[in-house]
Write a protein that binds this DNA or RNA. Structure first.
Lengths: 362, 362
DNA sequence: TTGTACGCGTTATCAA
DNA sequence: TTGATAACGCGTACAA
């Protein structure tokens, strides 16, 4: 280790070097940088001068974090490929609240996937099992998420789960999907609609598209999809169900075309499980020469600002996506402080827009 | 320090504990976990059993990283609020390539902003100056980015910049914006267009919207905006220029309405500086009763898949966004290996779609 | 207000 | 194959 310091490849200065150069003890120098104790102005200046001289730019974060027992980093694990995750405005909003909340806490965000590739290949990369993190937030709930959960719990790290089923004792941040979906369904029933269709989020990781049979519906594994669908079916047991491949406008377009294909059977109202899907359905309706909401009503879910929806104001259930993220951040903060953190179920706010109206005479 | 280990709040097991329990030396136990040297099967098993017994889940990443001198984490610094950054499909694509590239390298991605809030408040959060990172990738090029750059360079960490002007010796990954924009302009001139308008990306961090005066154009600070605009103006010196507030469909819609407002002066072709803007312009055109491309041609830039563009295939310059990210990842890998990394300028591929056509007779 | 002493948990090195 | 040893760079009681 104490090999010859190659000239030119000189070892970086440490706080000890700075202290020596400034003629103070290492602890004093340390305090100058951390500000954890008062230091005489003159001393401080001397230390800072020495630091500048030696090119010392502050404590090595690795050593500091070992000493402190904390890294100041929280992992956010996503169940998808990063690209698709950030394509979803709801997730980006949640991430936004989360990063805000964590920033207040003073922690950084390490993006991770639930992919256990680390174990497989010689992958030395940080994972939930090996990253220098103080806590983790899991978003979503695939089967792999459960493995991920194991890994984190085994390390004794605090975990918070957003929109997922995490089991006992793990704070969960989610939404009252059932109630919100019921409200939308009742709104449409109140307007006289009877021939209703539902465009759903994916049923599972396979993301099969198309008209769904009762068997397929029974096999839904994604909790969000199931909750929102069941509530609608409770009000409209005969509703046609079309599953989409994801929460995207173009997926809604595809589903919408399917629904409006046959004028004889087309629905008078479509309940989409996300605003993006709803936007696609509206586009499909207009493409088919149908006016919204005169000929067909369309409701969404999420209450995000859909870029490209034009003049329409979507009837939807507004979910507090940013707040969800923020709540997760708060929960992490509490856990990190050694306190308990309760699970929180947020409610949606029904918003009547311009895309739903009285059922047309058939 | 060696205070009484409170019963119940027992200290986590360390590799030393495991070694002791297994009757081996710490170094042997360490090797069992790292796999860096052959270990007798029996010994290995004994160690693993001891680890399981004690609930030891592997080396503490903090200590390991102190010892190794590397954390396995690379920072990605964005110049915006995370939400807006991930709203941009080009950036998400770039992030995608980047995360892929870094994943191969076996490093995690720490999201950071260029915001120097850390210095201001008692903000203890990780920043480019304090995070336990091995390298950094800066995306974009605000004034703040330069400060960020300083901080990282001072630490002696490798840096790569995407779409930014970083100065000497720093690998830069960017695009030949000028050539691509020229190609688009020439394509339209070849189709006979003379009355052309440009809808640009923001001029600077203020993001002022509207028709731009020569003075405002002269004051553009965003390199990408400037490069793409100058090339067009070289071909169409009289082009009307409208600046947008960001790369969004709805921003394109606003700009488009402005352009199509007055039938007497409306352009026969619009060059948008991004595909999202182009999509908004197309919507504005259709809203004004204009057919694309019969009445007005619209070209974009980026070549991303715009969700919600319907049937149109945009005429655009396809940029290798994912490859850019990947290249940045590769550059980081090279730098981390102690090698040189060259700057790379990617080229766009001109793609003629269905949104541009011959200039209509005026 | 400053200095001393020690340990945070690993891992590279080298010798056995 | 295994073991002893020495850093890695810092923060913080505690004493002065």
């Amino acid at each position: 280790m104490s090999t010859d310091p190659l000239p030119g490849a000189r070892r970086r200065a440490t706080i000890a070097d700075v202290a020596r150069a400034a003629g103070v003890s290492p602890s004093t120098a340390s305090v100058v940088f951390s500000g954890k104790a008062p230091v005489a102005a003159a001393t401080k200046e001397r230390v800072q001068a020495a630091a500048a001289e030696l090119g010392y730019t502050g404590p090595d974060p690795r050593a500091a974090s070992l000493r402190r027992g904390r890294s100041g980093i929280v992992a956010v694990a996503l169940e998808e490929h990063l690209r698709t995750a950030f394509l979803d405005p709801v997730k980006t909003a949640t991430m936004d609240g989360l990063t805000d909340g964590l920033a207040e806490l003073g922690t950084g965000v390490l993006l991770l996937r639930d992919d256990p590739s680390t174990d497989a290949a010689g992958g030395s990369g940080p994972s939930l099992a090996t990253a220098p993190i103080d806590a983790a937030v899991l978003i979503g709930c695939s089967a792999r998420m459960l493995d991920a959960l194991q890994a984190v719990r085994a390390r004794g790290l605090p975990v918070v789960v957003i929109e997922g089923d995490a089991g006992e004792g793990i704070p969960r941040i989610d939404l009252d999907n059932a109630e919100a979906a019921t409200q939308i369904a009742q709104h449409l029933r109140g307007l006289g609609h009877e021939r209703v269709a539902v465009v759903t989020l994916p049923f599972d990781l396979r993301r099969v598209r198309g008209v769904a049979s009762p068997e397929r519906i029974a096999a839904i594994t994604t909790p969000v999809t199931r909750a929102r669908l069941d509530s609608v079916l409770a009000v409209f047991p005969q509703a046609r169900v079309v599953s989409s491949g994801g929460s995207l406008i173009d997926e809604g377009l595809i589903a919408g075309r399917l629904l409006f294909e046959d004028p004889a059977t087309r629905p008078t109202a479509v309940i989409a499980q996300s605003d993006l899907l709803a936007a696609g359905v509206i586009r499909a309706a207009e493409e088919a020469g149908l006016r919204v909401p005169d000929d067909v009503s369309v409701a969404g879910f999420d209450g995000i600002a859909v870029d490209g929806l034009g003049e329409h104001v979507l009837t939807t259930a507004v979910q507090p996506a940013v707040e969800k993220g923020r709540a997760a951040g708060d929960a992490v903060a509490r856990l990190l402080a050694g306190e308990q953190a309760a699970s929180i179920r947020f409610s949606c706010t029904f918003r009547e827009g311009t895309t739903t109206g009285p059922a047309p005479a058939l």
